[in-house]
Design a protein around this nucleic acid. Structure first.
Length: 203
DNA sequence: TGCCAGGCCCTCTTTAGGGCCTT
């Protein structure tokens, strides 16, 4: 598989359209079946974190007060990721924040997102839940740290991505897994999936 | 004042509703 960046945001809520902002971002570069580089930073966007989200993530308002400005962090992380494909767990969420935070620094996204949640629903249909934590447990992946911290979640989503690649190679006998194949799989309906995989096998 | 996300997916569906995910 080509080089990809797996990213994760912690935020003040669910919707940038409602004024929510990022509080932490992490990106890990996956190449040759392993994580080869990492970026992580808290970020101060000047928006108060609700108490229940402080409890969820462990990221407090005090921690954010001493964090670097959100704009500076977004310049760094978007330079770090560059134009390579981005993977995230429930990518529609992270893509909305990625786009909204880039807009604050007058930048635009250069690539599409791949969603490990949609891929897991296709490729690990028997998992009792497709939450990141539940998939880590189901697939017996290493717990990389505290859930709901950006770097730990990005590392675990990267492990999940590699597990999905392995599933395609070993169970579905796909000789070469590409980002384009992942995009086709996440777009495919359950009924279309067998044909999609057969085409990827070369038959 | 009242409201408050959005996309995917399933089904007792398509003239719709509700659960799952992300924080």
């Amino acid at each position: 598989m080509e080089v990809v960046a797996v990213i994760d945001f912690e935020t003040t809520g669910l919707s940038p359209a409602q004024g929510d902002r990022a509080t932490e971002v992490a990106a890990v570069i996956v190449e040759g079946g392993r994580v080869v580089d990492r970026y992580q930073s808290l970020m101060n966007a000047g928006v108060r974190i609700p108490a229940y989200i402080e409890a969820l993530t462990g990221i407090s308002n005090a921690m954010i007060r001493s964090a670097p400005p959100a704009d500076a962090v977004m310049r760094e992380v978007s330079d770090f990721v560059g134009g390579i494909p981005i993977v995230a767990h429930n990518a529609s969420f992270d893509a909305r924040f990625w786009d909204a935070e880039l807009e604050h620094i007058q930048r635009e996204r250069k690539q599409d997102f791949v969603c490990s949640l949609l891929l897991s629903r296709r490729l690990l249909p028997l998992a009792p839940s497709h939450k990141l934590g539940a998939l880590v447990e189901y697939a017996k992946l290493p717990v990389a740290g505290r859930y709901h911290r950006a770097l730990a979640d990005a590392e675990m989503a990267a492990s999940l991505l590699l597990r999905l690649e392995e599933e395609l190679r070993l169970r579905h006998r796909v000789p070469e897994v590409s980002v384009d194949l992942l995009r086709r799989i996440q777009r495919a309906s359950k009924a279309q999936l067998p044909r999609c995989l057969a085409a990827a096998r070369g038959g």
